[in-house]
């Protein structure tokens, strides 16, 4: 039973990170039907910025939680700037173009950002300081769930609640929902669609940056390539939950994380990915639009 709980919690931790990143994919897709392949790179840039800020702050004698908060906030600001610029440079000029063009542009930006970090920083793995301290009250159960995992779970939950509130109750949230339903109609009734899209990218990037900082301080290393696999997994989670649906992304992320964890724990970690993607195939066969996705009719 303890083993089951251990696996459940590690799957939940992993899944909540997938969910954070998947939200960025799903929100962008919901509004402009674009799969933003460069989203994983934003996650990686968030982790790198936090790494650099940590180095600087350590020199100035800050410690522990204060570094985590300052580094986290700066990582968010920086990643948001990247997300905003990305949209402005790579996607906005292609707004009216066929759907494949922005997709190619997204793949290009992903490769560009990866190599940019490789050249500007380093191809090597860098040690990321363990910013999340080991809480004394967690020590008796540290072998089941560590402090870092607890912080990840709480942070992602708080973030998701805030996101829900933002979308449900604020003006920009309402505008986002309107744009998602019908972009041209929203424009007609006076919604500044371009601003809404920019905001969506900024929010998605902020979520990715939070994920990046949490994961980096949990596993203790960063590298220019970490965004790729995380991006692929998060994209899978978004599709699994129904791309375009926000609760879908969260459920997809958790389902994927738990599947991987249980597959590794009860079957074999050799087959971790086999189970994850096998599940995706199964769900798409039974529910082609994903767990919570709505099947939409395409006008031809």
């Amino acid at each position: 039973m303890e083993y089951f709980i251990e696996l459940f919690l590690s799957g939940l931790t992993r899944g909540s990170i997938y969910a954070l990143i998947a939200l960025g994919y799903t929100m962008v897709y919901g509004i402009i039907q674009l799969i933003n392949f460069a989203h994983g790179e934003i996650y990686m840039i968030g982790a790198f910025v936090a790494y650099i800020v940590c180095g600087v702050l350590t020199i100035y004698g800050f410690h522990g939680v204060s570094i985590l908060i300052i580094a986290g906030l700066l990582a968010i600001v920086y990643s948001c700037a990247y997300g905003y610029t990305l949209e402005k440079v790579a996607y906005r000029p292609l707004r009216g173009a066929p759907r494949l063009s922005p997709l190619i542009s997204a793949i290009g930006m992903s490769i560009f950002l990866q190599n940019y970090v490789l050249l500007a920083q380093t191809p090597d793995f860098l040690p990321f300081p363990a910013l999340i301290p080991d809480f004394a009250f967690m020590e008796p159960i540290a072998h089941i769930i560590g402090s870092a995992e607890l912080v990840i779970l709480v942070t992602t939950m708080v973030t998701m609640v805030m996101l829900t509130l933002l979308i449900k109750y604020t003006k920009i949230g309402k505008a986002m929902r309107a744009t998602q339903q019908d972009m041209s109609m929203a424009r007609l009734v006076g919604v500044n669609v371009d601003r809404v899209i920019s905001t969506t990218f900024i929010i998605g990037s902020a979520l990715a940056a939070i994920g990046g900082v949490l994961v980096a301080s949990y596993i203790g290393q960063v590298n220019f390539y970490i965004g790729f696999l995380a991006g692929v997994k998060a994209f899978t989670a978004a599709v699994l939950g129904g791309i375009g649906s926000i609760p879908g992304a969260v459920i997809g992320g958790l389902v994927l994380g738990l599947t991987e964890s249980f597959a590794a724990g009860y079957v074999s970690s050799d087959y971790e990915d086999v189970f994850a993607f096998g599940l995706l195939v199964l769900i798409l066969i039974m529910r082609p639009a994903g767990i919570l996705g709505k099947a939409t009719k395409q006008k031809v």
Binding site: I17, V215, I219, E272, D273
Partner: peptide, 12 residues
Amino acid sequence: TPGAMDYSSIIQ
């Protein structure tokens, strides 16, 4: 899997 997010399941 190299590059996987974490190895906690296998460690358990």
